[in-house]
Simulated assay, not measured.
Amino acid sequence: MIADTSPWAAFGILTAAALMFLLVLHAVTMAIGHRIGRYNVVDVSWGLGFVGISWLALILGPGDATRRWLLAALVTVWGLRLSWHMYQKSAGKGEDPRYTEMLERSGGTEIGIVARKIFATQGISQWFVSLPIQVSAVVDATAGVWTIVLVAGVVLWLLGFTFEAVGDAQLRRFKADPANKGKIMDRGLWSWTRHPNYFGDSSVWWGVWLIAASSWPGVLTVLSPVAMTYFLVFATGARLLEESMSKRPGYPEYQQRTSYFLPRPPRAGSESTP
């Protein structure tokens, strides 16, 4: 813990430590990606980066200890589950088409391009999205009515985590059944939204923001969950996945009857599609 410093001085030390941690994490991840010939390994370090920052905030932050422990616990559970899921998803497979297309548009796989377009972008994004955790770690305890905001944040995190974890598990079981080969997953949560994992991820980070916003000036970090939602919906998440999936038989029909992002009851005729 950083003692005898103002909150903003403590924040400066914490955010510098977070940036250094992310620099080392992505340098190692890029070296691993270069060695194995695929850079989608960065997806594994996505969750781990937030876990590391949450623990730096816990250790270095002079703010309310209860909130630091709470955020460290919630982010660790979310981040480790996500990183393990991404490792299982990508192990033994080739490069993610999203990164192949991104590098092709950017001029190739030269190390400078890879470092800038994939790893530096991810690292900066992690630092910015994690600002609620960092700011929350250097401010005082929640009191009075603001405790309701903190509780609401925990509830929203739980909703998001459940959506993301259950959605991933449902898709994994669906793909493991040979009878579903060539079919579109449109069951369970996937009949309510085409991207339950991305919706859950977004909800998790809005929950984290609410926990941080329960003490001033955490509310000022609102652009962090906005940025995360933008990444998931419009940048590297759902939009790119939709571009590739829309070419598969049955997916355009699935798009017509199932919500894009926000969950809602499936429209009529949402039976499984070959």
Rank of each mutant, 00 (worst) to 15 (best):
M1I: 11
I2E: 06
P7W: 04
P7M: 11
W8L: 14
W8M: 13
G12L: 15
I13H: 07
T15F: 13
A16C: 11
A17Q: 05
A18F: 04
L22P: 04
L23R: 11
A27V: 12
T29F: 03
H34D: 14
I36M: 11
I36C: 05
G37R: 05
R38S: 02
R38C: 12
N40H: 12
V42I: 13
V42F: 07
D43G: 06
S45E: 03
L48C: 09
V51T: 10
G52L: 05
I53K: 00
W55P: 06
L56N: 04
L56I: 03
A57P: 08
A57Y: 01
I59G: 10
G61S: 04
G61W: 05
G63N: 06
D64G: 11
R67M: 06
R67T: 15
R68F: 03
W69G: 05
L70K: 02
L71R: 01
L71K: 06
A72K: 07
A72Q: 05
L74H: 03
V75D: 06
V75F: 05
G79H: 02
S83Y: 05
W84E: 09
M86T: 09
Y87S: 09
S90I: 13
S90Q: 11
E95K: 08
P97R: 03
T100I: 13
T100S: 13
T100F: 02
S106W: 05
S106E: 13
G107E: 04
T109Y: 06
G112F: 10
V114P: 04
A115T: 10
A115S: 12
A115R: 14
I118Q: 00
I118T: 05
T121I: 08
I124V: 14
S125L: 15
S125E: 05
F128G: 04
V129H: 03
I133V: 15
A137E: 01
D140W: 09
T142K: 06
T147M: 13
I148W: 13
V149W: 02
V149N: 00
V149D: 08
L150W: 03
L156K: 01
W157C: 07
W157P: 00
W157N: 02
L159F: 14
L159S: 10
G160D: 08
G160V: 03
F161E: 09
T162V: 14
E164H: 05
A165E: 12
A165P: 07
A165T: 15
A169T: 14
L171H: 08
L171R: 11
L171F: 09
R172Y: 09
K175C: 01
A176G: 10
D177C: 11
P178G: 03
K181R: 14
K181L: 13
W192C: 03
R194K: 06
P196L: 01
N197H: 12
N197L: 07
N197C: 09
Y198C: 08
Y198R: 08
D201K: 01
W206P: 05
V208F: 01
L210G: 01
L210S: 02
I211K: 00
A212S: 14
P217V: 07
V219K: 00
L223M: 13
P225F: 01
M228E: 12
F231E: 12
F231C: 08
F231V: 15
V233G: 01
F234D: 10
A238V: 14
L241W: 08
S244F: 11
P249N: 00
Y251D: 04
T258V: 14
L262V: 15
L262Q: 04
R264E: 06
P265A: 15
A268T: 13
S270R: 10
T273L: 15
